[in-house]
Computed example of a mutant assay.
Amino acid sequence: MEKVRARFEVLDERFARVGGDDWMERVFADGRWTEGPAYVPAGRYLVFSDIPNDRVLRWDETTGAVGVLRQPADYANGRTLDRLGRLVNCEQGTRRVTRVEHDGSLTVLADRYRGGRFNSPNDVVEHSDGSIWFTDPSYGIDSDYEGNRADPELDGCHVYRIDPGGDVERVADDFERPNGLAFSADEGTLYIGDSRRKHIRRFTVTGGRALSGGEVFASCDAGTFDGLRLDTEGRIWAAAHDGLHCFAPDATLLGKLHVPEVTSNLVFGGPRRNFLFITATSSVYALKVNVNGVRYPR
C-alpha cells in the first residue's frame, strides 16, 4: 500500500491542534474520478464511486482489499448511510435517488419533481426526522462522461427535500451548480456548496424542512468546492483542488490538509469517526486524525 506524506498547513493558530498520521495511505489508485465515500461501521468497510467507469467499489478495512460492489452502477455519485444503516445513493445515469435495502433490493425514493425528471442528483444527507436532502446539478446530463447526455426537464439546478412520506419539495432555487451539503451537529444549519460560483453558503433550518438566510459562508482559493463534512467541534471540512480546506464556524479558513490530487469528497469513518477517507481524482486516501466527525444522522 503506497503512502503519501500528510501535510497539514496551519493558517490560523486554532488549527495547530489539528493533525493525525504523518502519512496518508493510498488505499485505491485505479479510478477515473472517485466520489461518494460512505463508511459502513457494521461491516467496517468504505463504499465509494468511480463515476466515469460506472462502478461502485468497496474497500475492506480488515483486509485492505478493494472489490467491485456494483457495475454497472447507473453512474452513482454521492451517498450517505441512513439511520437504519442503509445506503442512500444519488444516481446520475438514472437521474434519481435510491436506497439499498438490507436484503439488497433497491427502492426509488425520488426521480422527478412536478413531473420533470431531475438533472442528475449529486450529493445527499439525511435529517434526523428521516427526510432526505440532496443537490441536483446537471453534470450527469451535460455529457456522456459521467452519465447520459440529455436535455434538462427542470428550470435549473436546485436543492430538494424528500419527506419521510415520499413527497418532494424544492428547498433552494438560487444556485448555479449546487454540490456538497452537510448539516451542523444540531441540524440548525445547512451548508451547501455551489461549485460553479466557487463558494459555500450557510442556511438556517427551521422546523426540519424550511431554509432561510443563505449568505456566502466561504469562497474557494483553489479551484472550487465539492463535498463537505463537519467535525464535532463545528469545523467545516471542504474538498477543493489542493486538498481539504478546514473552516471555523466563524468562517475563518483555519488550515488545509494538502492532497496530491484534486479532491472530490470526504467522510469520517472508523468506530470513533476519527479516520478520514478522501476521494481524489483517481485515488482514495485514508489517515487517522485527532478530530471526530459528526455522527449522521443524529
Results as ranks from 00 to 15, higher is better:
residue 5 R to W: 06
residue 190 L to I: 12
residue 67 G to P: 00
residue 3 K to F: 12
residue 96 R to D: 13
residue 198 K to Q: 05
residue 25 E to P: 00
residue 110 A to W: 01
residue 119 N to V: 01
residue 282 S to I: 06
residue 153 E to H: 15
residue 235 R to G: 08
residue 108 V to T: 13
residue 31 G to M: 14
residue 54 D to M: 13
residue 60 D to W: 02
residue 206 T to A: 14
residue 164 P to A: 05
residue 212 S to D: 10
residue 228 L to N: 03
residue 170 R to M: 15
residue 131 S to E: 03
residue 240 A to C: 13
residue 191 Y to Q: 01
residue 105 S to Q: 11
residue 55 R to W: 12
residue 44 R to E: 15
residue 64 G to K: 11
residue 220 C to W: 12
residue 202 R to W: 10
residue 151 D to A: 08
residue 263 T to G: 05
residue 57 L to A: 11
residue 138 S to M: 13
residue 185 A to Q: 09
residue 173 D to K: 06
residue 66 V to W: 02
residue 185 A to F: 05
residue 205 V to P: 01
residue 194 D to C: 08
residue 270 G to W: 12
residue 3 K to C: 12
residue 14 R to I: 15
residue 151 D to L: 14
residue 181 L to V: 09
residue 237 W to E: 06
residue 191 Y to C: 14
residue 53 N to R: 11
residue 201 R to I: 04
residue 88 V to K: 04
residue 229 R to E: 04
residue 195 S to K: 01
residue 215 E to A: 14
residue 233 E to T: 01
residue 145 Y to Q: 07
residue 92 Q to G: 15
residue 15 F to G: 07
residue 5 R to D: 12
residue 217 F to I: 09
residue 101 E to V: 00
residue 114 R to S: 02
residue 175 F to H: 12
residue 249 P to R: 05
residue 223 G to L: 03
residue 87 L to F: 11
residue 159 V to Y: 00
residue 10 V to A: 05
residue 36 G to H: 04
residue 46 L to I: 03
residue 280 A to R: 01
residue 214 G to A: 14
residue 197 R to E: 13
residue 228 L to E: 01
residue 155 D to R: 14
residue 105 S to H: 09
residue 197 R to K: 11
residue 289 V to F: 06
residue 161 R to M: 11
residue 209 R to P: 00
residue 225 F to L: 11
residue 185 A to H: 13
residue 147 G to V: 03
residue 272 R to C: 10
residue 249 P to C: 13
residue 88 V to F: 04
residue 229 R to G: 10
residue 183 F to S: 03
residue 142 D to E: 15
residue 26 R to G: 04
residue 34 T to I: 03
residue 179 N to W: 07
residue 29 A to H: 10
residue 224 T to Y: 13
residue 250 D to I: 14
residue 277 F to E: 05
residue 218 A to S: 15
residue 62 T to N: 05
residue 135 T to L: 06
residue 203 F to T: 00
residue 12 D to L: 09
residue 170 R to I: 13
residue 50 D to W: 08
residue 100 V to D: 02
residue 93 G to K: 05
residue 116 G to K: 15
residue 26 R to L: 11
residue 82 D to Q: 04
residue 130 G to N: 02
residue 177 R to S: 07
residue 264 S to T: 07
residue 92 Q to T: 08
residue 31 G to N: 04
residue 64 G to F: 06
residue 240 A to G: 06
residue 112 R to D: 01
residue 290 N to E: 03
residue 26 R to T: 10
residue 273 R to N: 14
residue 62 T to L: 11
residue 4 V to Y: 11
residue 195 S to D: 07
residue 187 E to M: 14
residue 287 L to F: 13
residue 153 E to S: 11
residue 281 T to N: 07
residue 30 D to P: 09
residue 225 F to N: 11
residue 194 D to P: 12
